[in-house]
Design a protein around this nucleic acid. Sequence first.
DNA 1: AGACATCGAGAGCAGCGCTCTCGTCACAGA
DNA 2: TCTGTGACGAGAGCGCTGCTCTCGATGTCT
Lengths: 227, 227
Amino acid sequence: MARRELTQAITTEGRRQIAQHGADGLSLRAVARELGMASSALYRYFPSRDELLTALIIEGYTALGDAIETADARADRLGVTGRWLAMCRTARAWARQHPHEYALLYGSPVPGYRAPADTIDPAARIPLALLGPLRDGWRAGTVAGQHGVPLPAGLSGQLENVAGQVAPDVPPEVIGAAIRAWTQLFGLISFELFGHLVGSVDPADEFFEYEIVDIAGQLGLPAPSAT
Amino acid sequence: MARRELTQAITTEGRRQIAQHGADGLSLRAVARELGMASSALYRYFPSRDELLTALIIEGYTALGDAIETADARADRLGVTGRWLAMCRTARAWARQHPHEYALLYGSPVPGYRAPADTIDPAARIPLALLGPLRDGWRAGTVAGQHGVPLPAGLSGQLENVAGQVAPDVPPEVIGAAIRAWTQLFGLISFELFGHLVGSVDPADEFFEYEIVDIAGQLGLPAPSAT
DNA sequence: AGACATCGAGAGCAGCGCTCTCGTCACAGA
DNA sequence: TCTGTGACGAGAGCGCTGCTCTCGATGTCT
């Protein structure tokens, strides 16, 4: 089957182009040119440019998910807080190393509005991994229950629904805290990458460390043993 | 001076197109067509498509900044916490009413990497407005000093530098908390608008309320008197 | 051996950003 | 009043894009 190999060659070249020129710079003709084939032949493998983009989005989520899960596993002996910090640092590092791919995943949805069903599962791996330490800490009794504001009924239902799918024994407050931490982490990475911090804390290394430690505290994770 | 009017007609039509089809759907030729003129004539007013986009970005920041500042002023009698909540709700409402414009401001920077100097000042109005209640509360002694994690030296310098430009009497910890709240707010709005919350807390109204009240607590703002 | 599906190539369409040239018009100075 | 100058709009055109259609070649199954 040369088809699988050629399909992969196309996505590889596409990813190369996005890494260099961003999602807007992805041109089917240029990909075909680089692969030494006619542009029309490319449509045998991807019915449209958007489909190729979708494939690249899935690959991006997969790469980021792999990186985060690997970091989680490697930090296992550091405890739940160490795992959380390691995943945060890995996410930021991946984003800085692949800024255009990150923008493809977490920037504006490029064509009109998108949410192809195929991208949902790969995308969900990231928040699921981030939830890991919190879930384990909760089960081990090392994370606090938190926190001040009581959950309104509708939100509680939403969070219990999420919990039912991923960690039925974890109370909705903890799920809510995880979602907050998730949005906070990627909000910060996006702000740094997209240049919104330029006038303030722009070399954001220290601010990022400051933040993820603080979020760990919000999450009720125990104080870290070491870096 | 027909020049000013025509320039404005172009940006108005451009904004209309972006609102309908997103930033990618902005076409100089289509704008010219809609205005009944040759596409080449448009270059008398904007030297390139990117320049027109920059003008629209500035208009977007200005519109959002106006909305937030107005909300702040209107909530004056509600106290600092009420002002904070009002601005958060207004920011979210504006984003939901102008999703494509919001994506233009806070989504991926579209052409390569951008940060035209002209956009910085209009963009800075938003975090500055959000800082307002926190600054006033600090001066009135109604916000706590916070918080657990001590500031590393480099970050402290960055934050003092920011403080020196906008509120010299406010300590760096409070500036840091404001930046955190700012990234948290727009991180959440972006996640909602870009569809990342679809599987979890998707009708995000309650989660958003839950969040901004919690952030107010993190900021050390006093409990709100009323909604 | 013949029928069939798969694949690549080439031409072509409509659209895009942008450039260049040319005719028109208004206004300022002699 | 005549003339030079600058601003302006229109049109043609370049190279690029995504995408479609047709045609010939190749390989596989019956």
